[in-house]
Design a protein around this nucleic acid. Structure first.
Length: 500
RNA sequence: GGGCCGUUAGCUCAGUCGGUAGAGCACCGGACUUUUAAUCCGAUGGUCGGGCGUUCGAAUCGCCCACGGCCCA
């Protein structure tokens, strides 16, 4: 059966390449490991790209390069090819007469596009001025058995780009650049927070009680302990335990898991930055966020006007700040404050907007439904929305002047939520009461409602200093900065259904 | 979950009214010592996503399924 599949799988080109490999095996070591390069393509272009042909001739530079052969143009006794390494491409000029007798025809010409080569030679410029290596020693380091996608159109099929990301990375510069930017963003944030006095930590990915967010968790099982465990939906409660423990400023950049549907904005596992700062409040975090994102744009993209899907967002001008209620009234000018101030009129507004309501919804939840329906997608330039109702903020500190809302904000760009932060609820008794409310909702059938985490309450009872905390969705931030329409474009290996 | 679109050679794509499947690139053979989508000559390559049905005959029409994309909930 397996044999049958193999035969089916064997395309003509793969067969030919297997035969070439078989010959290589007979001739010696088919997969050598002893070649060492001394430079990568990007360094060569940076250092010698601007040099005149005469200068390169006057002081010969000898280099060893390696990479995947991406193109080849054979013209009788001479050939050009490009090899690609992590930093870019460099052209090789290979001629028959400087190689050992028979090597050019019997070896080099039998290699295929996609094979991985090591080459040694002198830098020079071609007639058209392209920096190239005049090769006098070249070896096949790895035989590729499968052909690459077509050189001109590259790899366009979305599904293959996601399922075989390595092909996408080989063929598409834009894809490579996207993931380089992703890494630069994460590096910048790590350095920014570290330099601001935050300590990077790691907290459990497997939790007995999944806390810190309202979402359905993945469940797993620990065999030796014979107990159920959950993949975390957020690190929040553990990070705040660390604040109780005296690690006053901490951050973690790591994966969260949520057992929900997939979309252009949702992947079951996604990367989150969470950070906590003691002796600070949510205003301090809004300021920090604004500062960090502005610097991030400058440093990573070299500009503060970001183009996303044809729209431009300015990170240079001060970010807008308004409350949930203000934003609802601002984007629904026909509404008066009293229309959303009590549950009966708010229900009418929601019904007018065709928002399905549940009996369990209080005024706060209804306001948020109205906000999500009429405001969220219109928050284009960077905007902080503040004063979220207590009802939808079970871990946030109650506002001193208006106990209906919390000292909380969310941050939006391009109509999408990027961050969520608040002054932390460090009143253990209030927190216990909020957990009880959540458990009631869970018992009433809300699969996303929180568990009661007694251990966390105990931690709070030991005293957590006044603290503000925030989470930033790294994937959505990367989407924004790389102009990616789907979260799958910024995840190296996005979740896919099994193919067959 | 619903709607729309897509799935044809290794890759990128055509395929008319239902009548035995096409191109470019890649690959194979040949020519060629500054090419860069190299060029020129010649040849090979197909489970048309899967299944069922309609039909003398299906890549094409119908139904079901799978996977993907976009939009909506």
């Amino acid at each position: 059966m397996a044999e049958e599949e193999t035969i089916q799988d064997e395309q003509e080109q793969i067969k030919q390449r297997r035969e070439k490999l078989s010959t290589l095996r007979e001739e010696g070591i088919a997969f050598p490991t002893d070649f060492r390069r001394d430079v990568v393509a990007g360094e060569l272009h940076a250092e010698y790209g601007e040099k005149a042909a005469e200068d390169l001739e006057a002081t010969p530079v000898r280099v060893k390069v390696a990479g995947r052969m991406m193109t080849r143009r054979v013209m009788g006794k001479a050939s050009f090819c490009h090899i690609q390494d992590m930093s870019g491409k460099i052209q090789l000029y290979v001629t028959r007469d400087v190689l050992p007798e028979g090597y050019y025809n019997q070896q080099f010409k039998k290699w295929d596009i996609g094979d991985i080569l090591g080459a040694e030679g002198i830098l020079f410029k071609t007639k058209t001025g392209e920096l190239s290596v005049k090769v006098d020693n070249i070896r096949l380091l790895t035989k590729a058995l499968r052909p690459l996608p077509e050189k001109f159109h590259g790899l366009a099929d979305q599904e293959t780009k996601y399922r075989q990301r390595y092909l996408d990375l080989i063929m598409n510069d834009v894809t490579r650049e996207t993931f380089l930017v992703r890494t630069r963003i994460i590096s910048f944030i790590r350095e920014f927070l570290t330099h601001s006095g935050f300590l990077e930590v790691e907290t459990p990915m497997m939790q007995a009680i999944p806390g810190g967010a309202t979402a359905r968790p993945f469940e797993t099982h620990h065999n030796a302990l014979d107990m159920g465990l959950y993949l975390r939906i957020a690190p929040e409660l553990y990070l705040k335990r660390l604040v109780v423990g005296g690690f006053e400023n901490v951050f973690e950049i790591n994966r969260n898991f949520r057992n929900e549907g997939l979309s252009t904005r949702h992947n079951p596992e996604f990367t989150m930055l969470e950070f906590y700062q003691a002796y600070a409040d949510y205003h301090d975090l809004m300021n920090l966020t604004e500062d960090m994102l502005r610097q991030l744009a400058k440093q990573v993209l070299g500009k503060t006007k970001i183009t996303y899907q044809g729209e431009e967002y300015d990170f240079d001008k001060p970010f807008t700040r308004m409350s949930v209620k203000e934003s609802i009234l601002h984007y629904n000018p026909e509404l008066k404050p009293e229309d959303i101030d009590n549950i009966d009129s708010a229900c009418k507004v929601a019904e007018g907007l065709k928002i399905p309501l549940k009996d369990s919804y209080g005024l706060g939840k209804i306001q948020i439904e109205i906000f999500e329906k009429t405001v969220e997608h219109r928050l284009m330039d960077p905007t902080f929305i503040t004063a979220y109702p207590v009802e939808v903020s079970p871990l946030a500190r109650r506002n001193d002047d208006d106990p209906f809302v919390t000292d909380r904000f969310e941050f939006f760009v391009g109509g999408r939520e990027i961050a969520n932060g608040f002054s932390e609820l460090n009143d253990a008794e209030d927190q216990a009461e909020r957990f009880r409310k959540q458990v009631e909702e869970k018992d009433a059938g809300d699969m996303e409602a929180m568990h009661f985490d007694a251990d966390y309450i105990t931690a709070l009872e030991h005293g957590m200093p006044p603290t503000a905390g925030e989470g930033i969705g790294i994937d959505r931030l990367v989407m924004l900065f790389t102009d990616a329409p789907s979260i799958r474009d910024v995840l190296l290996f996005p979740h896919m259904r099994p193919k067959a």
